[in-house]
């Protein structure tokens, strides 16, 4: 069974953390992953940086620019991760935009993920429809889970369709926004969280975008299986580096 599916069966709310690979320093990737696992994080999204991240706000834009300057590429990332399964057990997902993967070759990229022990991908600008028509068989061949996003504007019909072709979890974007632009959830978000929870989808949902602290994490996981923190964590490592990750995770979990 894929590590993601196994993790989703655990009887707890999941904390997933996004970070940008190769940031703040090129060789921080593996340390970051190891320290996140040590400090109780359930799942990790490894950000493969892209020059033009359309769905991201300034924090992740800046970390991506810096990571690319540091020399991060698909090839470098795969090299850094080649022994990762000797030390890390939690699910690992690569999150990145489509063009770098397309240049690497989608099949070669997926094969490499399987070899290393990456469990899934999140590709915000590869739409469900194109995935379904052109890439689904490749993901299946290499045992990878592709995670799709839904937003408050996604129609019920489309959510049902996305649910039908997903086999891990659904990434619920908390509000109409790019990453890192929210502070706190209001009535609108709560209504949306409830609406989705009441749809009884076959895939569990994990909420992301706008989760930055204990309060928003608790609010989100009241309605969903877990929550993803990105920009807030990237800000933490910008300031404090990757050795004191516990000071960040402690504030979220306790």
């Amino acid at each position: 069974m894929n590590r993601i599916n196994k993790k989703l069966q655990e009887n707890k709310k999941l904390l997933s953390i996004y970070f940008t690979a190769g940031y703040p320093n090129i060789n921080d990737t593996v340390t970051t992953i190891q320290n996140l696992e040590k400090n109780g994080v359930d799942m990790i999204e490894i950000g493969l940086p892209f020059s033009d991240p359309l769905a991201d706000g300034p924090t992740i834009q800046d970390s991506s620019t810096k990571a690319i300057k540091n020399g991060m590429t698909s090839e470098v990332l795969f090299n850094q991760l080649k022994d990762i399964r000797k030390t890390v057990n939690i699910p690992l997902i690569i999150m990145g935009y489509f063009n770098p993967m397309f240049q690497y070759g989608m099949e070669a990229f997926c094969k490499k993920c399987q070899d290393i022990g990456v469990d899934g991908l999140i590709i915000p600008d590869l739409p469900v429809d194109i995935y379904n028509a052109e890439y689904k068989s490749i993901f299946e061949k290499y045992g990878l889970i592709n995670v799709f996003l839904i937003t408050p504007q996604t129609s019920e019909k489309r959510i049902r369709f996305i649910d039908s072709i997903s086999n891990g979890f659904i990434y619920m974007v908390s509000s109409a926004s790019t990453t890192g632009t929210q502070s706190g959830f209001g009535d609108q978000q709560t209504a949306y969280f409830k609406r989705i929870a009441n749809m009884n989808l076959k895939n569990p949902q994990i909420i992301g975008f706008g989760i930055s602290n204990h309060e928003t994490f608790t609010q989100a996981t009241q309605y969903a299986k877990g929550a993803i923190i990105g920009s807030a964590f990237v800000k933490h490592v910008t300031k404090h580096g990757v050795d004191t990750i516990n000071t960040f995770t402690n504030t979220i979990l306790n």
Binding site: D52, L54, I68, Y97, F98, N99, Q103
Partner: peptide, 22 residues
């Protein structure tokens, strides 16, 4: 340019071999 994705469409675009837009 080489085939790639920019601003929502597949087209010819100037990029590095790693797929970063130049």
């Amino acid at each position: 340019g080489k085939e790639g994705i920019i601003h929502g469409c597949k087209t010819l675009l100037m990029q590095t071999k790693d797929g970063q837009i130049t």
